[in-house]
Every structure is written in structure tokens, then in C-alpha cells.
Design a protein around this nucleic acid. Sequence first.
DNA 1: ATAGGGTTAG
Length: 640
Amino acid sequence: MRFGPSKRLAAAFKPRFSLTSDAGLRHRHHPILSRLPTSPSLPHILQAHARLLVVGLAAHRSSLAHLLALCAALSAPAPPRYFRLLYAAIARPNVFASNNLLRCLARSDCDAARDALPFYAHMRRAGIPTNNYTFPFLLQACSRDRVSGEGTQVHSHAVKCGLEEDLYVRNAFISFYSSCGELNHARRVFDEFPGQRDLVSWNAMLAGYARAGRTDVAQELFDRMPDRDPISWSTMIMGYVESGALEKGLGLFRELVGKGLTVNEATLVTVLSASAQLGLLEVGQFIHSTIRSMDFPFTVALGTALVDMYAKCGCIELSRHTFEEMKQRDVFTWNAMICGLAAHGLGKEALELFQRFLGEEGLRPTGVTFVGVLNACSRAGLVAEGRRCFELMVEEYGIEAETEHYGCMVDLLGRAGLVREAYELIRGMSMAADPVLWGILLGACKVHGLVDLGVSIGNKLIELEPEHDGHYVLLAGVYARANRWEDVVKVRRSMAAHRGTSKVAGWSLIEAHGTVHKFVAGDKGHKDSVEIYRTLEVVTMRLTEEAGYSPDVSAVLHDIGDEEKVHAIKEHSERLAIAFGLMVVERGRPIRIVKNLRACGDCHEFTKMVTKVFEREIVVRDGSRFHHFKEGKCSCFDYW
DNA sequence: ATAGGGTTAG
């Protein structure tokens, strides 16, 4: 496997100033600027600036412009207040200084980048000339802000300046139009002078189609390209992954690795994220082993992606191991680990890690950290601790509580039976409460048998989102708890009547020996279908005899006969996946299942019994958390 | 001094 230096490394080895460069020559003998290191940091620049002030050279145009250029080249964006001050200090700014201000603006956040276009207008009014450097910087700033409207005007300026055939300028326009979604404009520039085209032009065009979700056109270009480099591959792979074609992205990654071509960090992180999203452990492990066999540097981003992948694939121990192995971590790493522990129901461990995090030098928790922390409190039933953390977030860290945080708190209070308090919390919010919050509260009403409150919330939710199946299911559950079966039937009927397009089909998937097997309820499409159903039959029989299993049909009460109801539960996708898992996963290894929806109560009981009767471990990832089933118990303690 | 891909937490 070949493995070349990254672009950043290459940039570090490139001499900052060639001997033919004006700027370089001018400062070779400068008493202060010539003493700066080749890639100075912001403090270096500030220090040099201070010395210029002290010796009275701070009004010197080329010195200041040089400092501005250094700011523009910093690896982290320079503070806007500082580079604006530098530019303002230049008496008669020239193209060089102005271009570098544009570059600084382009590299800042959106607010500052918005000033790039007005500044360009100012340049033209003030008679400052523009050159081939001006447009790339200007367009970069404009695409950060997604203002495509003025693009065509700027384009005609560039043509007037005689720069329409300049490769850098052309590529800047291709990528500008691409990032604004103006694919036809981009394509016109791309097609205009086929002689003035290089790998960068192809990659920019490719990225345009990929970002727009036109992976078909992107693939066609990718196949037609005269050359491909690691960026072409990562653009294509990311295009697939982002448009949801995760398997295609992973397939292309396999091809890339199979051909022994150079892989870059962005690609690895993207495919790790794809396998994490899908919960495909075998794929994730394949990527991990690829990373190891290439001796790829173990960067913070890669480590974080691995921590996240293992956690999302159900291997919380491997996730922790990776986390502890990392020599450097950033907020993302800590967040991934804290949220991972919480998702696995390891509330105490997550809180301990949070304490350790607070002791870290130079890192501050973010809103996401608190999503993990509050989730952890909720899972561990630590009500007082949860309240304290919520307060800490708002008071101490000045983080505004978002819907997610309220969601955690409602869940925490509701789970502990403090439904009234949870209700008040939602009512007291300054923003409009997301229906999701009422849904969480409704779940608590169901569990604690609060029929009146549950009915009123349920009806309100159905009114708000009549096409949302989950609300009907929960409300029916509330009625079922109170044995109000007629109402259960009514709700079910009205659900059937409102069944809209937003209904999500439940599925479960399981990986076995390099293949992904996906099941839906009543699925007969699998090649081993007959054997799977036979196995399921046997499993159900043994559970009935040895563990006293009897299906609880209340969750699926329809307007149908009892026998059919039992049938409907019996073929829920996760049971098919479990039966298949029992067939193919060797003893001693856990059966890992990924679902898109939450488990129904009966399937949850069923799974618990399977682990006891068959002495197997089953790990289920549902829509929001993990269930570790072992010896007849589940890590969620039956509240999910 | 210039153009292309950029990930990770809910």
C-alpha cells in the first residue's frame, strides 16, 4: 500500500517565500520580519507587530501588508478585529494588501465573510486594481456565505479583467458555482475551455454534483476523468455516504483499498461514520484494520471516529479502549465517549468521565456534552444529579438549553415518576415546546398509569401531528393500562384512517460473516426464510414451556381477531433477526441487532427470555439507545 | 499570497 504525505504536511515543507517572490525579497533583510519563523503563529505575528510599533516602522506599507499576509496564511483563522486593524493602518492599500484582507475575510466565520463582497466593491471604487489572486479569495468568501446572486456580476468583471482563461480563476468559479448549487453555471465554466482544465477543475465539478445529491452524474464524471487523486475518491465516497447511499460509499472504499491507492483521513472518517450510522461492526473493523495495516497516523479525528463507531456498533468496551489509547483528545472525543456510555445505559461511568473531562486543561463542555450527561443521569435514575447538571450547564457554562436538553430532563423526571414536574418544566419553557417533548411525557404517563393526563396529551399530539403513528400507539397504550379496550380500538381505528405517507416501516438488521441481513415484519424474502421461521417456531415453543412466555397482545391491538394479533407480533422484524442470529452466530459471541424503531414490550420480554433459555447474549440498538440482554435481564431495566 | 475533498458528539 502506498501512502503519501498529506496536503498539510506538503504545505509545511514548501518554502514560504521563493526567491523570485517580491514579498520574500523585500523582507529578507527586514530587521524584524526576517526573524519570524517560516510559519509563524498568531502570537509571533503580534510580537513582530509590537516591535514594529516600538521601532517606529509600523506605518510602513509593505511591512503591514506582509503581516496581513501572514495572518491570512495562519492554520487557524485570525481574529477579524486584528486583521481589520492591520488593514486600516495601511495608508494607501495596494492589490497585495487588499487581496490578503479578502483572504482573511474568506477564512473567517460567516459574519466577516459577508463583508468580502462589499469590500470588493470598495476596491473597485477606490481604483485598487484586481488580479488573478483577487477572484479566488473573493469567491471563497462568497461561497461561505452562499450568495450566488452577485456571482454572475463578479464573473463578468473577471472576464473584463482578461482573467477568463486563468486556471486558478476558472477553478475558483467552478467551485463557487458548485457550492451554491448553480451546477449549470459551474458546468459552463468547466466545459468552456477544455484546454484550461486540470484535476482541480474535475474535482470541483465532481464535488458540485456530489453535494447536490446527483451521484449519478458525479459517478459518470468520475469514470471519465483522465486522472484521479485521493481527493477525487474521497469526494465520490462522501457524496454517496451523504446522500444516504452508505453501502455504495463503502463499496467504493473497498475498491480504493483493493487497488492499493492512497487513502486520506477524510475518507476514513467518512466511511467510519457510515458504518457507525448503519451499526455495521464488521465493516467498521475492516476499516480499523485497514488503518492499522497502512500505518496511518492515529489522529484525533480518526480516534474520535473509531470511538464513535465502536460505541454505535454495540462494542462499548472497544470504544473505551480506543478512547484510553488516544494520546490527544478534543471536545468531540470526550463527547463521543460520554454520549456512547450514556447510550449503553452506563450512566455512572458517563458521569465519572464527565468529571474527568472537567478537570482537563483547556477544554470546555458544549451543549452536546450535556446531552450525554443528562442522558446518563436519566439512565442511572440520578434525579438530583440531573437537576444539578442542567443548572451547571446554564449558570456556569452559559449554554442555552435546547430541545434536546429539555427532552433529557423530561425523560429523567418522567422516569422517576415526577410527571407533574416534567409537565411544568415543558410549560415553563420560553420557546414553543417541540411535540417530541410531549411524546416523551406521554410515554411517562403510560408507564406510570396517569390516564387523564395521558389522554389529554395524546389527543393534543394527534391533533398536532395526525400522520404520526407513534402518538396513536402511545395513547392506545395509555388506554390499555386502564383496561379501556374500547378506547384502544377507537384509537387504533383512527390511526388506520390517518395512516399517511410518513409511516416508517420497522426493520432490523444483523451482520453475519461479511453480509448484512435486513428484515421487515413478516419478511419472507430471505433465502433461508423457511429455516428462519422454523427456528422461530421452535424458539417460541421453548420459551412458552421453559419460561412461561405468553404473548402480550395489548401493544398491537387492532380491529382484528386474537389469532391474527399474535401472528402480527410473532413476525416482528427483530424476532426474525434473533432467530437468524441463533442460526448463524457462533456460541459465546453476542448476537448484535440494529433496529430503526423502538422495541415493542412483547419483543423486549421475548428477547430477555431467549437470553436465559438459550444462554446467549443479545445486543440490540434501537432508535435511541442500546439494550444489552443477558441471563434474562436487560440493561435498560425495562424502561425505554 | 491563489483553485478541489473535510470528517468526529445529539
